[in-house]
Every structure is written in structure tokens, then in C-alpha cells.
Simulated scan of single mutants.
Amino acid sequence: MIRYRSILAFVLAGIAAFLVSCSSPATTAAPTYTEAQLAQIERYSADVQELRDRLLEIPPLVQAQRWRDVETFIHGPLGELRFRMGNLARSLDPKVQPEARAAAQEVFEHLIAIDEAAKARDNRKALSNYNGALADFETFLKLVPASEQPVAFVPSAFVNTVQ
């Protein structure tokens, strides 16, 4: 009986080791960008971030019921937003582009709804679409790679100067 337990334990250990060695974790490679692509993405991202910061000017205008100013602001300073977000989305990794374009489209749809709310003088619709635009904007910006990439090789001459 002890022999059978020993043999059974040995066989189960062998099967477990075989199953573990045959399986492999699913690995996905992060999108890689060249330095030139990262520089371009950083320029586009700065432009888009600047317009995102300007978006914060809408709620005070809505609360003050300055509807003409809301319409002018959407068509004026935020008029370039579609172009700049489109440029940024096109410069991203092809795997991320469809999601970035969809998020950008959602931002534009919310801006159109804010414009319609301004024409109808509807505070509630304007502010709810403003919140939706901010949420979709954040979704879009999460798809943009961080500007700081890990450095693979740092020459020893620069090690002491980097703090």
C-alpha cells in the first residue's frame, strides 16, 4: 500500500510539473515608439492638454447663463480641438488608434450637445454634457503614452550629472 502511494504521488508530481511547464503566461508587448514619434506625440499632447485646460472655462459661463459666450467659446478656442485630437490619435500605435478615435468622437459629440444646450438655454443639459466630455477626454488622454520612457543605456559620463 505504501508503494502505491509513493508511485501515485510521483506520477501526480510529474503530471503537475508537465502541465506547468507546458503553459505559458499570456504576454502582451507594450506599444513601442521611436524617439521621433514620442517627440511628435508629446507636441500634439501638449496642444490637446492646453485645450483640455481651456475646457474648464465652460461651467462658469453656463452658470452665469452667458449662452452667447458658451457658443462662441465652443466654436472659437475649442474649434481646433477636433483637428488636434485627430492628429494625436493618428500618431498613436495602430492598436490604440480605434479606441482613441472613438473617445475623441465622444468628446466632439458632447461639445455639440453643449452647443445645442446653449442655444436652448438648458443649464442641466450643458453641464451634464460637459461632465461627459471631461470623462471622455480623460479616457482619450489615458491612451497617450507617457513622455518619459525608461532609458536602456546611460553612459557613465552622465551618471553623476543626473539627479
Rank of each mutant, 00 (worst) to 15 (best):
L111Y: 07
Q65R: 13
S24W: 10
E99P: 00
E35I: 01
D69K: 03
C22M: 15
D69W: 06
A102T: 01
E138N: 12
A30I: 04
G86E: 10
A102V: 04
R54S: 14
P145W: 06
A103W: 03
E50T: 09
N129I: 02
E35H: 01
R84Y: 14
T27Q: 10
A30T: 02
E116T: 01
E99R: 03
K125D: 13
I112N: 14
R54Q: 14
D53W: 08
A135C: 04
S91F: 06
E57H: 09
S45H: 10
L127Q: 07
Q40P: 00
Q97T: 05
T34D: 07
L111A: 07
L78W: 08
K119R: 14
A89M: 11
T28G: 09
H110Y: 04
S21E: 07
A36Q: 14
L141K: 00
D93C: 04
R82V: 02
D47M: 13
E109A: 15
V20N: 07
E109N: 11
L56Y: 07
V20S: 11
P25Q: 13
L141I: 01
P77L: 08
S24T: 03
G79E: 09
K95W: 02
D115Y: 12
E99H: 00
R90S: 13
A103S: 12
N123S: 05
Q37I: 01
L55C: 03
D122Q: 06
A36K: 10
L92G: 02
E148L: 15
L38W: 03
P60F: 07
T34H: 07
K119E: 15
E80Y: 12
R82Q: 14
R90F: 15
L38S: 05
S147T: 00
T27A: 14
E42P: 00
R121S: 08
N129A: 11
E71F: 04
Y44M: 10
D136S: 15
R52S: 13
E106N: 06
Y33D: 03
L88Q: 02
A36T: 06
S21N: 06
M85P: 00
K125V: 12
L38N: 08
N87L: 15
L92H: 04
K125G: 09
V62H: 08
A118Y: 09
S91Q: 10
E57S: 14
N131E: 13
N131H: 11
N129F: 10
L78M: 12
L81T: 03
P60A: 08
